[in-house]
Simulated assay, not measured.
Amino acid sequence: MKKALLIIAAALASLLAPGVAHAETPPGCASARQIGSTAYVKFADGQTAASVKQFAGCGKNWGYVFVWADWAARHDLFHVTAAVTTDDGKNHGKVIGRVDQREVWSNATSTINQCTRALGVVSLGEDGWSKYTERRC
């Protein structure tokens, strides 16, 4: 009984901890997996605002941006943009989220046979901070 309560308490603590990762699945492709490592959008004062990831599966790529709860709690009226960028500098599948939307997926892109990076942008007013994931071919 005591062990079960400790496990439940640890699980609840991990759910409430800022910046804790959660499972992500791109819209329309449950078999897609993250490719490359996670990148982090850093705000002007050095605080981490968001995680940026690239996913591949079902013959497509997606960019994904997740704004951390602790950062979002201190900032209002932000916008998040997710896209997949190719070596020619074009942004594919670009999606700009609603005001204060913390999780944004790009649209699925037909870039699976190209070198790509996910792009995440967090904007506050006219200021914006961006980060690319590593290039994946």
Rank of each mutant, 00 (worst) to 15 (best):
78 F>T: 00
53 K>N: 13
69 A>F: 06
38 T>H: 05
132 Y>W: 09
45 D>V: 08
28 G>R: 03
95 V>H: 09
72 A>Q: 08
7 I>H: 05
6 L>W: 04
39 A>L: 11
37 S>I: 04
81 T>A: 07
24 E>D: 12
26 P>E: 06
53 K>H: 05
48 T>F: 15
118 A>Q: 04
99 V>Q: 14
98 R>I: 08
22 H>Y: 10
55 F>N: 03
82 A>M: 11
43 F>G: 00
100 D>C: 14
127 D>G: 10
93 G>Q: 11
30 A>T: 13
1 M>H: 13
110 S>I: 04
83 A>D: 03
72 A>P: 08
94 K>A: 12
127 D>L: 14
78 F>Q: 03
104 V>H: 00
64 Y>D: 10
114 Q>E: 10
41 V>I: 15
120 G>A: 11
10 A>Y: 13
86 T>L: 02
129 W>N: 06
32 A>H: 02
88 D>I: 14
76 D>F: 02
46 G>S: 10
95 V>T: 11
11 A>P: 04
70 D>P: 09
33 R>P: 02
6 L>D: 02
133 T>F: 02
83 A>F: 05
77 L>Q: 13
37 S>Y: 06
51 S>C: 04
19 G>Q: 10
107 N>Q: 13
121 V>R: 05
67 V>C: 14
58 C>H: 05
128 G>C: 13
2 K>Q: 06
39 A>S: 14
21 A>H: 15
86 T>S: 12
110 S>W: 02
105 W>E: 01
109 T>C: 08
28 G>P: 03
96 I>M: 13
50 A>E: 10
112 I>L: 10
35 I>P: 03
44 A>I: 15
91 N>C: 00
22 H>L: 15
6 L>F: 00
11 A>H: 04
12 L>E: 09
95 V>W: 05
109 T>F: 04
113 N>Q: 09
75 H>L: 15
126 E>S: 14
25 T>G: 09
114 Q>N: 11
57 G>R: 01
109 T>P: 02
122 V>S: 07
5 L>E: 12
49 A>R: 01
109 T>W: 03
41 V>R: 01
118 A>M: 12
132 Y>P: 02
50 A>F: 02
83 A>H: 08
57 G>F: 04
16 L>W: 06
63 G>W: 00
42 K>R: 15
70 D>Q: 13
20 V>C: 11
134 E>G: 15
15 L>G: 15
102 R>W: 02
92 H>Q: 12
123 S>D: 01
43 F>I: 00
65 V>N: 04
105 W>T: 04
104 V>I: 13
133 T>P: 13
46 G>M: 08
93 G>L: 09
63 G>S: 08
91 N>D: 10
113 N>V: 07
106 S>A: 09
104 V>C: 07
95 V>E: 08
26 P>K: 05
57 G>E: 05
102 R>H: 06
111 T>V: 07
